[in-house]
Design a protein around this nucleic acid. Sequence first.
DNA 1: AAAACTGGTGCATCAAATGCAACGCTCATT
DNA 2: AATGAGCGTTGCATTTGATGCACCAGTTTT
Lengths: 302, 302
Amino acid sequence: MKHLQDFRYIEAVMRAGSIRKAADDMNITASALNRRIQRFESEFGYEIFERMPRGVRLNPAGELLLQHFRSQQSDLKRVQSQVADLAGERRGHISIACSQALSPYFLPAHISAYRTEHPGVTFSVNIRDRAAAEQDLITFKSDLALVLEPVHMVDFSVLSAIPQVVNAVMRKDHPLAAQSEVRLRECLDYPHVMPSSAYAVRHMLERALAGTSRTLQPVIQSDSFDFMRHYVEFEDAISFQISIGLRLTEQSGLISRPISTRDMPAGSLLLGQMKGRTLPIASARFAETLIVAMERLNTGQT
Amino acid sequence: MKHLQDFRYIEAVMRAGSIRKAADDMNITASALNRRIQRFESEFGYEIFERMPRGVRLNPAGELLLQHFRSQQSDLKRVQSQVADLAGERRGHISIACSQALSPYFLPAHISAYRTEHPGVTFSVNIRDRAAAEQDLITFKSDLALVLEPVHMVDFSVLSAIPQVVNAVMRKDHPLAAQSEVRLRECLDYPHVMPSSAYAVRHMLERALAGTSRTLQPVIQSDSFDFMRHYVEFEDAISFQISIGLRLTEQSGLISRPISTRDMPAGSLLLGQMKGRTLPIASARFAETLIVAMERLNTGQT
DNA sequence: AAAACTGGTGCATCAAATGCAACGCTCATT
DNA sequence: AATGAGCGTTGCATTTGATGCACCAGTTTT
């Protein structure tokens, strides 16, 4: 869309931090880009960049403007999606930010099911930690977020929620495997691997231990739940994962045991969108199917 | 703003109903305008006009797109107003749609009070019947609406409400002037003038008489409450107006008497905005002062 | 002090938007 | 049936506005 050209340039300048670098990125001369920005600022009525000796930076006015542009760009996509819908095309693109735990089973299953019904719909699945997922919504990079225990919750409008207990993942022959549920302190007696601090599971573990004398002493710390699960197959340690990310098969040699809710209350897995935003048709429809699926999980678990 | 040029052209074509007429209005050639629209449609991905032998008309996709443009234009104004605010300029423009009853006293008083504090803020006051006021909100022509008994209430988000009883307006020497309140049927025994059917007062009167044997037989029907009030000074008839529009002085020779609520329940005067929209700083602030004023009226009347 | 950046500007150049004239079409009138 | 007025559309010459290049003035790094 041509009328958003200025926006693209402004965003590029913001990212690059200097007009010249941005000009290079956008395959244009610095002078041309500079003039575009000057013209825009003059039309807009206010400067949107702070000129510094080493480059430029968005000023508060520019931040506001950028947010406006992002919202308008996303709303235009919504309109296009709606038009496609009334033209009977039923196509569109859905961008969803989610925690790692959703990536092995839950999301692939539901996306694939949705795509058999609507083959014209395409997806972007962005694996994000809980803070980044919210940021994705705010910057309109994702339409939906499916995230465990979000941080800020401002501009986050909850569409659905299900409780998720943290499970200890271990080998079948592990001493704790005999129990149907395990205590947190038992787990810490054994070598344990855990996610880095950006992740909700880590946050929940630390919150559970706050006020106790026990501390986390992970032998491995990683930002990949997939890696941690596989690592346990090699060293006889304990890893952690929420239930929705678990569907351990026989041949994997691993089993999972829920950590007693006496030690750790269940966390909330939330499906949400940017507050106040109207989602494109496709995203709204997919969100509905996710909500149904989550409610089914909820009643099925109870 | 240059990047909204296409929008202005599209809107002009919609209004004119033909590309050639619109081109004339916008001081451009038909061919140039035609090409702009073609280019836009190709970028957008869908046709937005229905080509007919006698001209063009927006198709549903076009309607959707126009609504998007209007919202985006209004949001850009909001951003500008917000930037002006953080630059300490405290300026902006407020467009308000209101019923006629607000025009003599209520709005002038509050607008003037607001402008003494913020001289940089300018106003558009659009007198509209109750249906048109809502339409103004939807098309983003007005930021706020202050209207008696709106019709549809879809996309209308209520900010504040006060009850308004209909008053009978008559000469001081009118027989009914002796009473402190009057019955509706008494009024109809005398010659009466009343607003045309687009207005809420007329609608309330008709609703009050529905199911009774009495009917309205106005000697004068007008769309100007101002005219009707002045007419009563000449012919000894009865006119109607809600309380907020009345502040009859001694020298006018007129008095007003409320119609008994046994005959007609009080109507609601609603302050509202377009649902889901974020108002510009100036409009939001002015709305707050109106809300305070309306609450004060509410408690003062009780 | 020199080098390497930055944003900003004058001027020639080039691409894109525009204006003009004409075409094909439909509809109302003759 | 013929005609003319109105419509959207298109080819081509023209003009406007955006771009690229060279350069300046300033600041930071070397």
